[in-house]
Design a protein around this nucleic acid. Structure first.
Length: 767
DNA sequence: ATAGGGTTAG
């Protein structure tokens, strides 16, 4: 309609004194809404003296057509209050709006309106109510509507099944599906797709494939909706060959014009690292939307191909498609996870210059990248910046921060974040809880980890794995095994990570027979092929327990090529059992595989030193010099009253160093009275014994513990963290320290936790 | 005028 003509007609009508009746007003609203923007329609409506039912109807529909969802809901409420009525079709549309807006209360009021108007047996309205309630997570209310219906049609069944499936109540969904067939209603493609998407959304990927087979069994042709759900499952299962078959099906059945299918396929190839195929799909897409661009950009970005990603970005701008937050965030997370936090931060600034505001995802990507790359300081810095910009953290942010705390074993910081998560209402969030388990168990508070674990309502595989790993770190073998049994008992299928946790539990607890049982069982009963990590656990387990010959045979017979972790495990065992012959064999391989890892050289020198083979010590030391191998910086740290105190061998001495050494001398003489003998074999310099005693005293963990004993109440356990493995002497010394001062001491070294109390350590095979 | 299934970022 001609804009000005319409306005002229309106003016003419008023001038001539026409009585604007219902139909004219209704037409006017329609005209203004579609030609002049919804504002003028709303204004025209406000100026109309009468608000009769058809007018309500028209104005609400006009707002809906213009995507003015909030206004539409408000108008509906006004209409309801003033006793007006609207058509069924409008009610359906408004209910759909409630779904879009998550407006449960408005939805309930509309339900009341429906009952008052006697529309409770209108099929479409009931179906919409079911959908509205279930999309707002209120299945019980959806069910009440469903049960109260006099007649049901296909859509009614589809709505209720979609509700249950969409929220992950898969058993109920399957039962309803069965009930539907029994009552004589034949499921159509949409019904099947509800099942598919429900299972694919909620992790029952294998079931997706079963459903797919059943669909083909009843001769159904898949449509684009089915394909997207199946692809999602294929991605999660990593069945790339099946994905390619589906791609073939798509091409044969000419489904490749569908944008959803295109982006799903694209996503599949991107997530499976087939960027070449992804590019082909992308190039062949008839109509690309922003999803397609974003998928490919994320693919390049995650692989660290930033040039390609940026090129694509400028191409998309050239084609007139405006990058959205997702586009930018793909770049942020790519840069950030490759350790380029500067570039990632720069992208955040670019977002601003494009008139968008970085959101919680942008910041969390940055923070999580820092935590993955062990730039722990940055991760807290960026968190503070994010808070300063007024962005509230969500569960993903909290989990990333907890990961940072876990990485540094920062118990107090971790507890702060825990408080924050409680304050912001994430106590039920399974991701946060799982990160808490990890943080607490890596910070020496296994009890708290277990407390969190027990409270989780719907534990994921990751929650189980973290808790099992927690027990494993402490060498609680029985708990590891019983937790595994419990997990299988409730029907959670273990994965490869579960077995890494179990095997390292057996390793730390010295459970050789059990270790064999699980190692053999994982491929036999659970169909999980052991990876190099599992083999390395077994070598460690056998070696530590003293079965060095068995460890050697195990390495000889393994089907994978032994890597540095394997030889490292053997070398560590040789150190425990003082076996120079095997150690030399292992270290020869290690010098080839990782010539710059100083730990191997140090361990070997240690072994030679114990046997007084000083020429060999010198030989290894010279080798280090020739190859330019730098000794790893050794650090210990302790947190006292929110401040972290670092102790290092090379760096700046602690400001209170004088007092600390004084205290340590006193302490050692008290310890000696109770039987402590310094273990000078831990010093591999060829110097006299008095000097060796001095060197032992300067070990960073001793200094940190002493400082803790000086500054902390004896009721608070001392927690010291060390970035490398602690030596035998420090281990013995810590036992005596805990005895002399009656103070609980917890040390986390590069390998595991040691819990000292009353002169004993919790671990059973420490050296 | 009428309901039900699907795609991208941490």
């Amino acid at each position: 309609m001609d804009l000005w003509l319409g306005v002229e007609i309106h003016a003419c009508l008023i001038k001539r004194g026409f009585v604007l009746d219902l139909y004219l007003n209704s037409a006017l609203i329609n005209f203004y809404g579609s030609c002049w923007g919804i504002e003028s329609a709303n204004q025209a409506f406000d100026e109309m003296p009468d608000t009769e039912d058809p007018l309500w109807n028209e104005i609400i529909m006009a707002n809906l057509r213009n995507e003015r969802w909030m206004e539409a809901l408000e108008l509906f409420r006004d209409m309801n209050m003033s006793g007006g009525k609207v058509y069924g079709g409008t009610i359906v549309k408004v209910l759909q709006t409630c779904v879009k807006m998550g407006a449960l209360n408005e939805g309930k009021q509309i339900h009341g309106f429906v009952l008052r108007c006697g529309l409770e047996f209108n099929l479409s309205i009931c179906n919409s109510l079911i959908s509205m309630y279930s999309k707002n997570y209120r299945l019980e209310l959806a069910r009440i509507v469903f049960e109260s219906m006099r007649d049901r049609n296909l859509s009614s069944w589809n709505s209720i099944i979609s509700g249950y499936a969409g929220l992950g109540c898969l058993n109920d969904a399957r039962n309803l599906f069965h009930e539907m067939e029994v009552s004589g209603v034949r499921p159509d493609i949409v019904t099947w797709n509800c099942l598919l998407s429900g299972h694919s959304l909620h992790g029952s990927y294998k079931e997706v494939l079963n459903i797919l087979q059943r669909m083909q069994g009843v001769g159904l042709r898949l449509n684009s909706g089915s394909i997207t759900s199946v692809i999602k499952a294929v991605i999660k299962l990593g069945f790339i060959n099946m994905g390619k078959e589906i791609h073939g099906y798509v091409i044969r059945n000419v489904l490749d014009n569908d944008v959803y299918v295109g982006t799903s396929l694209l996503d599949m190839y991107v997530k499976n690292n087939c960027l070449t195929n992804a590019r082909v799909v992308f190039n062949n897409m008839k109509n690309r939307n922003i999803f397609a661009w974003n998928s490919l950009i994320s693919g390049y970005s995650y692989k660290g191909l930033f040039e390609d990603a940026e090129k694509l970005l400028s191409q998309m701008k050239k084609e007139g498609i405006k990058p959205d937050l997702v586009t930018w965030n793909c770049l942020v997370s790519g840069y950030s996870m490759w350790g380029c936090s500067k570039e990632a931060l720069a992208v955040i600034h670019r977002i601003k210059s494009f008139g968008l505001t970085p959101n919680v995802v942008s910041w969390t990507a940055l923070i999580s990248g820092c935590s993955q790359n062990e730039s722990y300081r940055d991760s807290f810095e960026f968190f503070i910046q994010m808070l300063e910009e007024g962005i509230k953290p969500n569960s993903a942010t909290i989990s990333s921060l907890l990961r940072t705390c876990a990485g540094l074993s920062l118990l107090q910081k971790g507890e702060e974040i825990h408080c924050l998560s409680v304050k912001d209402g994430f106590t039920e969030d399974v991701y946060v809880c799982t990160a808490l388990i990890d943080m607490y168990s890596k910070s020496g508070k296994l009890k708290n980890a277990h407390k969190v674990f027990k409270k989780i309502q719907n534990k994921t595989l990751a929650s189980w794995n973290c808790m099992i790993m927690g027990f494993a770190i402490y060498g609680f073998g029985r708990e590891v095994i019983s937790l595994f049994d419990e997990m299988c008992g409730v029907g959670v299928q273990p994965d490869s990570i579960t077995f890494t946790a179990i095997l390292s539990g057996c390793k730390n607890a010295g459970l050789v027979d059990e270790g064999w049982k699980y190692f053999d069982g994982m491929s036999m009963y659970y169909n999980i092929i052991p990876t190099i990590e599992h083999y390395s656990c077994m070598v460690d387990l056998l070696g530590r327990a003293g079965y060095l010959d068995e460890a050697r045979d195990f390495i000889r017979n393994m089907p994978l090529k032994p890597d540095a972790t394997i030889w490292g495990a053997l070398l560590g065992s040789c150190k425990i059992h003082n076996n120079i012959e095997y150690a030399e064999f292992a270290v020869k391989k290690l010098f080839e595989l990782e010539p710059h890892n100083s730990a191997n050289y140090v361990l070997m020198m240690n072994l030679y030193a114990i046997s007084n083979r000083w020429e060999d010590v010198k030989r290894v030391k010279d080798l280090m010099g020739v190859l330019g191998v730098k000794n790893l910086q050794v650090w210990s740290w302790i947190q006292i009253d929110c401040k972290i105190h670092f102790f290092s061998a090379e760096g700046k001495p602690h400001p209170d160093a004088g007092e600390i050494y004084f205290e340590l001398y006193n302490l050692v003489s008290e310890m000696k009275k109770l039987g402590y003998v310094p273990d000078i074999s831990c010093v591999y310099q060829n110097i006299d014994e008095v000097e060796k005693d001095k060197v032992l005293l300067s070990h960073t963990e001793k200094l940190a513990i002493t400082y803790g004993l000086m500054k902390m109440k004896s009721s608070t356990p001392i927690r010291v963290i060390k970035n490398t493995r602690m030596c035998t002497d420090c281990h013995t010394a810590a036992k005596y320290m805990s005895l002399v001062r009656n103070h609980e001491i917890i040390i986390k070294d590069g390998i595991r936790f040691h819990h000292f109390r009353g002169g004993k350590c919790s671990c059973n095979d420490c050296w």
